[in-house]
Simulated scan of single mutants.
Amino acid sequence: MNAVEISDTDRPDPSVTDAIRAAIVSGEFAPNQRLIEADLTGSLGASRTSIRSALFELATEGLVDRLPNRGARVRSVSLDEAVEILEVRIAVEGLCAAKAAERITDGEVDELRLLRAALIESVSAGDLLEYSRLHQNLDRRIREISAQATAVGIIERLRAQSVRHQFRLSFQAGRARVSVNEHVAIIDALIDRDPVAAQAATREHLMSVIEALRSLT
Rank of each mutant, 00 (worst) to 15 (best):
T49I: 09
D39S: 12
L55Q: 09
S76K: 13
T49G: 06
D65S: 10
E108P: 01
T105H: 03
L40A: 09
E156D: 15
Q136R: 14
R34E: 15
S76P: 10
G94S: 00
V123W: 03
S146K: 00
R52G: 03
G42I: 13
E37W: 00
L129C: 03
A147E: 12
D80K: 06
V92A: 04
A100Q: 09
I142R: 02
A54R: 09
I120V: 11
L114N: 08
L67K: 08
L79K: 11
I142K: 02
T41R: 15
H135I: 09
E84Y: 06
N137G: 07
D106Y: 03
F56L: 15
T41W: 04
L67A: 06
L138W: 11
S47A: 06
V92D: 04
D65I: 05
S47G: 15
I90C: 09
G107V: 00
E111N: 02
E121N: 11
F29K: 10
D110F: 05
P31M: 13
E28A: 06
A82P: 12
L134M: 07
A117E: 14
G107R: 05
I36L: 12
N137T: 10
L115E: 00
S53M: 12
L79N: 07
Q33V: 06
R73H: 03
D65L: 08
L115D: 04
L138V: 10
E84D: 13
V109I: 03
I36W: 08
I51E: 03
E84W: 11
I155V: 13
A91G: 14
C96I: 02
S146R: 10
E156Y: 06
G107M: 02
R75F: 04
R113P: 01
D106F: 03
E87T: 03
I155T: 01
